[in-house]
Amino acid sequence: MEELFNSYFLSEGGIYRSESTQIKEIIELANIIIRRVRTQYPLLPEIYFNIIDNNTFNAKAALDVKNGNIYYIGVYAGLINILFDVFTKTNIVRELDLNEEVKLSITSTKSTLEFDHSKGFSESISNVDIIALDRYRLIFEFLIYHEICHILRGHIAFKQSKKISELQGNFKEYSDLNINFIQTLEMDADSFATSWVIGDFRRFTLKTELTENTIYKNWETFIPNFAYSIYTTIRIFGFSSLPISKIKTFTHPEPAIRISLIMSNIATILDALNVDNIDDIMSNSIHMLKRAETDVVSVTFLDDQLENVKDVYFNPEYIKYYKQVLHNWNIIRDELQSYAFGELPGKNFLTF
């Protein structure tokens, strides 16, 4: 399976062969999560997970039809490098007066982000604080669940059955709608990942007696740090007030709106679980978003863009568009079911 994965992704760099503990732990985490999802969805097909030798800030799920409909999830080495440095270096920056030579250089090329190793700085994992590593692991849990959702809920097979123009809103049967169905699938994957990450905390961690300085102590520590992890990762793509015509060409929702939707989903889940002090938890989570912005700026050459988040989030034109993107679920849900490996949520489950 390893060589098939390597062959499939060869044009993008092939398999990333490394004996580092960091890489091994991510692969082990992915396999644990895949098995965990399969206990609830036994029809989930076999999925081979590995790392792609490419500096792009990306991860993807794929269907290898040529070799017998094998599903892969590949995380790009660039994603690992960028996130490890961003999450683990902020605590160092707070304590030291660092010059620009040790900041991270993250360059955008053709809508992808690449990591410039020559401008990064490294630190032994043993010297990084526990909370930083918790956040780093937590975001990979989210990303792995996100990619599994693309397979489990039929997104990959559904997209392969359509032309890209159709997925961007030109379905003949839906010709009156100028909308992007790919973004609807991405929002579904975000919702799935958010639910599972919070569910894992509730099932496996919440009842454990924790004495170390960790984010997993209780709801009050976990949710704000989960929000921090989400914001930091999505924020790296940058926020900007682009026209709707441009946003409709993206495969993922505009980052500021995407973060807002995830935060709304978190609040809904906590309410359904009857968690105490939800208002305080969400208020602290918003505070952590501000802290995450400050931290990202401190370790990169990126400018502070927190105000752009507000501009995008409260723009009526954006809100109208994303309500329609969410409503797409009602349009494609029944057709998507034929490609899924388990029962899909009902209509109207994606809300804003």
Rank of each mutant, 00 (worst) to 15 (best):
I236H: 02
K207I: 08
T205N: 14
S260A: 14
Q183H: 09
T194F: 04
Y231P: 06
T205P: 01
I257E: 04
V197S: 02
N178G: 04
Y216R: 14
E220W: 05
S191V: 02
S245Y: 06
F204I: 06
I257D: 02
I198N: 07
F239C: 07
G238K: 07
T251D: 13
K207N: 15
I179T: 15
F201V: 13
S240K: 11
I262Y: 07
A267S: 14
I262V: 15
T233C: 10
I262G: 06
K246E: 13
F222A: 09
T232F: 06
M263W: 01
E212T: 13
D188W: 01
A267C: 07
T232H: 06
T184S: 02
W219C: 05
N265S: 10
I198C: 09
I230D: 01
T249Q: 13
F237P: 00
E212M: 09
A193W: 00
P243I: 00
N265C: 06
W196T: 04
I269M: 10
S245P: 02
F192E: 00
I259G: 04
I234D: 10
D176L: 12
S195A: 12
T251H: 09
K217L: 13
N265H: 15
T221H: 06
A189S: 14
T232L: 15
E209I: 14
T249R: 13
Y216V: 09
I179P: 03
V197D: 01
I215C: 03
F226D: 10
I269E: 10
P224C: 01
R203E: 11
F204T: 08
A193G: 00
I215N: 00
A267H: 08
W219G: 04
T249A: 08
D176G: 08
F201A: 13
N218W: 04
D188N: 09
L270H: 07
A189W: 03
S260K: 14
L210A: 09
S260D: 12
S191W: 02
T208N: 05
P255R: 08
L185D: 02
F239P: 02
Q183R: 08
L185E: 03
P243Y: 02
P255E: 06
P243N: 00
K246L: 12
Y228P: 05
N213W: 06
T232C: 12
D190W: 02
R203F: 00
Y231L: 10
A256S: 14
I230A: 00
F239E: 04
S260L: 09
E220C: 07
F226R: 10
L242W: 05
D188A: 10
E254Y: 04
G238D: 11
S175L: 12
P224H: 00
S245N: 08
A193R: 00
S264Q: 10
S245F: 06
L270D: 07
N213H: 10
P253R: 02
Y174Q: 07
T211F: 10
N213C: 05
M187P: 00
E209H: 12
S229T: 03
Y216W: 14
L177V: 11
P224E: 01
E254S: 12
S260V: 04
T208M: 05
A256M: 08
N178I: 07
Y231T: 14
T268A: 13
W219P: 02
W219Y: 15
F192D: 01
E220Q: 15
N218P: 05
F226W: 11
F237H: 14
N225S: 15
H252T: 02
T205D: 14
S241P: 06
F226H: 13
M187D: 06
P243F: 01
